[in-house]
Simulated scan of single mutants.
Amino acid sequence: MTGPRACAPSELPQLARLADAVFRSKGGSMQAEYPLVFGEENLNFCRVIEEDGRIVSHVGVSIRDASLLGCSLRVASIGAVCTDAAYRGRGYASLLMEDARTLALGEGASLMLISGGRGLYHRLGYVNVGSFRSFTARAEILPVPAEGLRVEPCGAAQIPGLIALHQRLPVRFVRPADDWEKLLAAGMIMNQRGDCLGVWEEGRLVAYAAVQRPRDGAPARVREYAGSETALFAALGAVARYYEASGVEVVAMPGTEDLARLLRNAGAEEKELAFTGTLGILDVDGFFACIHPYVRECLGAPTDALFLDPRQTNSISFEYAGERYALANRGQLTALVFGGSTEEARSIPEAPPGVGEILKRIFPMPLLWYGYNYV
């Protein structure tokens, strides 16, 4: 066995065959569908193990900057975790996940998102937490677009406008133009084929929706949007008709309210979703340094009296006004920070009243939603 190590450029076809054998047995190309992982410029972050002269296990890492309520941080997204069937049970995925964690920390990432919920990730301390809202609206309750509003697919020519709209989101991945080019060309919205539909009002691009193509008359699934939420709501009927779908299903982007309110008032069915995978805070000091402006804004002067100690052997603790609140591990800290209704989010211990009241003024924070950045 050799590795964990980076995938060499000459090995990319071999790696693509392994990923397709595991994830695309019925057809498709992981390399084409997920350029943020399998692009040649990212091969140092395609971590592999070689045995018997070939690649037998892989963990893909995509490291991007993100903005969380005005705070800048680096995020490592993990995907395409796979092992050749003949080499499973040897601990290769665990070795690669630890290698990916070390690599991500070296790149300055303080948060890791994993597109999966297998037991391995939970054993390594990652948790399924976070809270998102999903709305499903039948076509008949959606508005008829007003004159002057149209819905059409976006392409490379619209990238500057898409960037301008996306930059307004309060919780988002930072997505440069070259990422937009690759993602639009790939035609994937998270884990399904999809389209980027622009909403034009009086000839001006005012919103977009990244929509998974519906199957067998199911709702069209909006998995990312940005721009005017009022215009987007007015265009949802046209989105449903574009696909001849039974309606639309929309995941509300974190930190936004208007589209959710409009859908709720229209009678859409609402439900809570957890994050579509597992996650963990990698670097406690680094993460809290990143969100310090947000914490300071929430607390004011008490910020300086709230002390976080991540260096204890078996726990992470907050101290405030003589009270101490200990969390057993980084998984519990991640659950505290991002909240939600999952068992892991509910299982964190109750805080003493003083420090608990302070922490409630900060947490939970909204969590990043993958959208186009799914790997």
Rank of each mutant, 00 (worst) to 15 (best):
M1A: 14
A6C: 13
A16I: 07
A16Y: 04
V22S: 10
R24M: 14
K26V: 07
G27R: 12
G28P: 05
A32S: 12
A32F: 09
E33C: 02
N42R: 14
F45V: 00
F45P: 01
R47N: 11
G53A: 10
V56L: 03
G60E: 07
V61G: 05
I63H: 01
L69V: 06
S72E: 08
R74Y: 01
V75A: 12
A80S: 15
A80L: 15
C82Y: 04
T83P: 06
A85L: 15
A86G: 13
A86R: 15
G89H: 03
G91I: 10
L96M: 09
A100Y: 02
A100K: 01
A104S: 14
A104N: 03
G106H: 11
E107Q: 10
E107P: 00
M112I: 07
L113M: 13
I114G: 05
S115V: 09
G119I: 08
A137L: 05
A137Y: 05
L142I: 08
P143F: 01
G155T: 01
H166C: 06
R168H: 10
L169W: 09
K182A: 15
L184W: 03
A186D: 01
I189D: 05
I189G: 03
M190C: 00
M190V: 02
G194H: 13
D195F: 03
V199K: 02
A218H: 15
A218R: 15
A220K: 02
G227D: 03
A238S: 12
Y242V: 00
E249M: 14
E249I: 06
A252N: 00
M253K: 10
T256V: 09
T256G: 08
L259D: 04
L259W: 02
L263S: 06
N265E: 12
A266V: 14
A268I: 06
F275C: 09
T276E: 11
G280M: 08
L282H: 10
F287K: 04
F288W: 01
A289E: 15
E297L: 15
P302I: 13
N314C: 08
N314E: 09
Y325K: 08
A326Y: 03
A326D: 02
T334N: 04
L336P: 04
F338Y: 12
G339I: 06
T342I: 06
E344A: 09
A345V: 07
E350N: 12
P352L: 05
V355G: 00
G356S: 09
G356E: 06
E357P: 09
R361Q: 14
P366Y: 01
V375R: 04
